[in-house]
Amino acid sequence: MSDVLDGFGWLTTAAHWWGRSGILRSLFEHLWYSAFATGLAVLIGLPIGLAIGHTGHGRFVAAAAANGLRAVPTVGIVTLLFLAQPRALYPVLVALTVLAIPSIVLATAAGIETVDADVKDAARGIGLSRMQVLRDVEIPNALPLIFAGVRSAANQVLATATIAGFGFGLGGLGRFIYAGYSGRRFDEVYGATMLVVGLVLLVEITLATVQRLVVSPGVRESSTRRPVPLDATVPSTLPTAIQLGGEST
């Protein structure tokens, strides 16, 4: 517990915030690496996920590829690219983007796929084109799951962006964890770790708020309180004819 308090002490020491190796600059680096990687992953992953979910084609391949990407160690990607061009920034951005893409693709595809088939059918039935169905029916209905994918990607990226400072000398909050650990300055390690956790919570709250604003109240409602299936309200002891709408007699 005292270690955690030391971490707060480190965080609340003004001198640690300024300068080229200060918290402020590292915090900014950490945020922009993460925002860039998550943003790029959305740009790449969202269309792929939409296409798979909408057409139903390539689901198996995409799932396999996404899980394959997940198995690639992020540190490995950074190290390989870094050695080709020392202290270039793109290795970290590439690695973080690769990390973020799978959860976005898979969540988006799953979101689109699980939109009620009857709803899609009805939309086609009243004359919407395939693109209109995607835009006006499938995406709004899939938004909660799409957001879940983006949020989980953003969390992973924020936590993993610490590798930029792990021996690669590219800054971010990982710098303090790496340097503090080697120098046995654990107040620094705890302080930076708390900042990362704080960032994750902050981004999570922000995205949750955006989600509330963007997702249609109707979709939100149905995700918590599912409509009761029609036949469940009808006692099963009644004659079949009555169940089907009373067209007998």
């Binding site: 080229r20 061009q85 710098r175 080697s182």
Partner: peptide, 21 residues
Amino acid sequence: FKEFVPLDSGLIAESIASDAI
């Protein structure tokens, strides 16, 4: 110093040689 860059010992020589530091 203008800046101190903490690096893995295996990457220091290449970082200097590439003018990154």
